Simulated scan of single mutants.
Amino acid sequence: MAWWAWLLDISGALLLILVLYGAGLVVRRRLLSRHGGTFELSHRLRTDQPGRGWVLGLGRYSGERLEWFRVFSLSRRPKRSWTREELEYDGRREPLGAEQTSLYPDHLVIRCQSPGGLVELAMSTSSLTGFQAWLEAKPPGADWNRHTTA
Rank of each mutant, 00 (worst) to 15 (best):
W6V: 06
E136T: 05
L87E: 12
E136A: 15
T125S: 13
L58Y: 05
L14I: 06
R46H: 10
K138P: 00
L25Y: 00
G51C: 07
S75Q: 10
L87K: 09
A137F: 03
R28W: 02
L66A: 03
A150R: 07
G97F: 07
V19M: 06
Y104V: 11
L32S: 04
E86P: 02
P78L: 11
L66W: 01
W6E: 12
D106P: 01
R93N: 12
G130A: 13
R76Q: 12
H43M: 00
G116P: 01
V71S: 11
A2W: 00
L56H: 06
R92Q: 15
Q132M: 13
W54K: 02
R146G: 01
L74M: 07
R34H: 06
C112L: 15
V27A: 11
W4A: 13
L135M: 11
E99C: 08
P140I: 08
Y21E: 08
K79L: 13
A137C: 12
E94C: 03
F69T: 04
W3A: 15
W134M: 10
R28S: 05
D106M: 06
T148Y: 11
V109S: 11
R146C: 10
R30F: 03
Q100I: 14
R30K: 07
R76A: 14
T148P: 00
L25Q: 07
W3L: 14
G24T: 05
Q100H: 10
P115V: 10
E99P: 03
A150K: 05
L66V: 01
P139E: 15
G12I: 09
R30L: 12
R34W: 08
L25N: 03
G36L: 05
P115G: 15
S73K: 03
D9A: 13
S11P: 00
V71A: 12
L45D: 06
T148F: 11
L14S: 08
E88T: 01
P115D: 14
V26K: 01
L74R: 04
L135Y: 03
R28A: 08
A142V: 09
S73Q: 06
L87R: 05
E64I: 04
D106G: 01
W3R: 11
